[in-house]
Amino acid sequence: MPLSEHEQRMLEQMERALYAEDPKFATALEGSGLRTYTRRRVYQAVAGFLVGIALLMAGMVAQVIPISVVGFLVMLGCAVLAVTGWRKAPKPGEQQTLGDTAGDARRQPRQSRQRKSVMHRIEQRWQRRRDEQGH
């Protein structure tokens, strides 16, 4: 669900305040997004696909069927990884939502879950302040 204009302005103010207060922490959070992770995963899958092609060709040249089969399986696995990584990558301009499901949280690294819980608490506090100001 997209953010309203008011919410976007408030988020921008929070980001500016974070950069002003702790620029090192803000830049560390900026570079560790889901988009960067999925892009790296897709690149690794493409490199693995090329290795699979090399194994397949080497197996054919050496006439060793098991090497060719392994090369094909590597190619297939890397193709699946690349496609699923590409589909999961957020589009440019899209924001990652903070309210992911519990199943997603189990699959994420521990540090990412901690960062998300901190962001969730900040979001809850912000919502409480906003509700108090509105009344």
Rank of each mutant, 00 (worst) to 15 (best):
M1P: 14
M1T: 14
M1W: 00
P2N: 12
S4V: 07
E5F: 05
E7V: 07
E7Q: 15
E7W: 00
R9G: 08
R9F: 02
M10A: 10
M10L: 13
L11S: 05
Q13W: 07
M14E: 14
M14R: 15
E15D: 13
A17I: 00
L18D: 08
L18N: 03
A20Q: 11
A20P: 04
D22Q: 11
D22Y: 00
K24Y: 08
K24E: 11
A28L: 13
L29I: 03
L29R: 13
E30M: 03
E30A: 09
G31C: 06
S32H: 12
S32E: 13
S32I: 07
G33I: 01
L34N: 03
T36D: 06
Y37E: 08
T38A: 03
A45T: 04
V46S: 01
V46H: 01
G48C: 13
G48E: 05
V51S: 08
G52P: 06
G52S: 11
G52E: 03
A54S: 15
L55P: 02
L56T: 12
L56F: 11
M57W: 08
A58H: 13
G59N: 08
M60R: 15
V61Y: 14
V61Q: 12
A62P: 00
Q63W: 00
V64P: 01
I65S: 07
I65P: 00
V74R: 07
L76I: 06
L76G: 09
G77L: 02
A79F: 05
V83Q: 06
G85S: 15
R87Q: 08
K88R: 14
K91D: 09
P92I: 04
G93H: 06
G93I: 03
E94W: 03
Q95V: 05
Q95I: 09
Q95A: 10
T97H: 13
L98V: 10
T101P: 11
T101H: 13
A102M: 08
A102I: 06
A102G: 12
G103L: 07
G103V: 04
D104A: 12
A105G: 02
A105N: 05
R107D: 12
R107G: 09
Q111M: 09
Q111K: 12
Q111A: 14
S112D: 12
R113N: 13
V118E: 08
V118C: 02
M119F: 11
H120M: 11
H120E: 14
R121H: 13
I122W: 02
E123R: 11
W126Q: 04
Q127C: 02
Q127P: 00
R128M: 10
R128K: 14
R128P: 07
R130D: 10
R130P: 00
D131Y: 01
D131I: 09
D131S: 12
H135K: 14
